[in-house]
Write a protein that binds this DNA or RNA. Sequence first.
DNA 1: GTCTATACCGTGATAGAC
DNA 2: GTCTATCACGGTATAGAC
Lengths: 232, 232
Amino acid sequence: MKSSFLSADAGPAEPKYSETALRILEAAERLFVELGLEATSLRLITQQAGVNLAAVNYHFRSKDALFEAVFARRFEPWARDCLRELDALEARASAGTARFDAEAVVMCYVRPALALSKDPSRGGALFVRLFSRVLVENHRALRETLSREWGHLVSRYTEALGRALPELTAEEVAWRLHLGFSVMFHAFAGNDILKLFGRSAVSARDPDLIVKHVVPFVLAGMAATRGEGPSG
Amino acid sequence: MKSSFLSADAGPAEPKYSETALRILEAAERLFVELGLEATSLRLITQQAGVNLAAVNYHFRSKDALFEAVFARRFEPWARDCLRELDALEARASAGTARFDAEAVVMCYVRPALALSKDPSRGGALFVRLFSRVLVENHRALRETLSREWGHLVSRYTEALGRALPELTAEEVAWRLHLGFSVMFHAFAGNDILKLFGRSAVSARDPDLIVKHVVPFVLAGMAATRGEGPSG
DNA sequence: GTCTATACCGTGATAGAC
DNA sequence: GTCTATCACGGTATAGAC
């Protein structure tokens, strides 16, 4: 078993939380998902958790750090799933039992996202929505952690997509990945921009339905011909 | 000249603002763009505008309403440009001088966005970024206004895309529009999700560069084959 | 180590004097 | 129209009880 930090070893992870800390963590998760980060006050969290306000500053450091902890608890197992998918794809491709194309790479993200969506014990669709919304909104609370701990995950997807689309330059691959993931995050976030205008016919909540529509869109976009002309 | 409320007549618009109100409006716009909505306090705005704190509640009603005013001043002329583009496309198509395809429809959004990006007197690229960020983040401040005043704009794009892609069902058209606009908003917002992970090679600031990469992606996505299989 | 009460300062909003 | 004073609420910090 290769144990490079680039691949998906199961860490011990799950730092032990005291009972108080866990109560805070769980109340916070529920409220962040329901109300969003800004709209959830520490006083509401601690009240629902049945603990003192100051406990959140003792066990976690700040509201942002609490959010980081809520996030990490759900995100890390998921990210490890993604890495395992990528490892498995590489293995299958080496063995000649799988094509290494854009669809295979995209599915290395979609499959774990879909599995998580359907597993309430790991946060389910609600967490996927929270996760995507947070990425889309670029929250300061996560910037440091994500780039320190999970930058290599993006590197893996970038390499994989570059291998799947060898006719593209590195810059083009970066753009396709950027755009493709933007749509997928957005779709999974359940944000319906057009609904802001009161005119959307899209019901964007069922994960299977999202995948059904978003995957063909993303695959076609990633495989687009450079500077496609007006008449195809 | 048909003058249905559905098409693009030039309204008088521009309600007269007192000098104090204008000073607030302009300081607010600059700061909202620089710092974001949440991070900009009314005390900072009024201080930079050289007016009293309470003036913002007198001239506008609340912080959200102030944002609405800042937004409307830039958005309305732009939205009218979009409507004019759609009207012009329909006219050219009727006259047989233009193809009514997905690219033509998408360009009805991209052209005004690009023009606005390059016109600092109307807010320029900074406002396009603010606008896109606000849509992406689904701000409560705009929900009511957008659906009341500009819902028909989305209806126009929906109809147009349906006409350009007649082989798709209405549900599919809604999804393609939703996904396509999501990517474009996101790209124009300059949000780089992958940069959160510290690993993005995309420099997402130059509007022309954004268009160059995003348009082929969106067009390919919109024209995607239903449930595209693994081997194309 | 763990938990609590309480105080501090910045936020948006508002009432009422001028 | 403008300004001062004040409010309730937010995140945070700390002193001190157990």
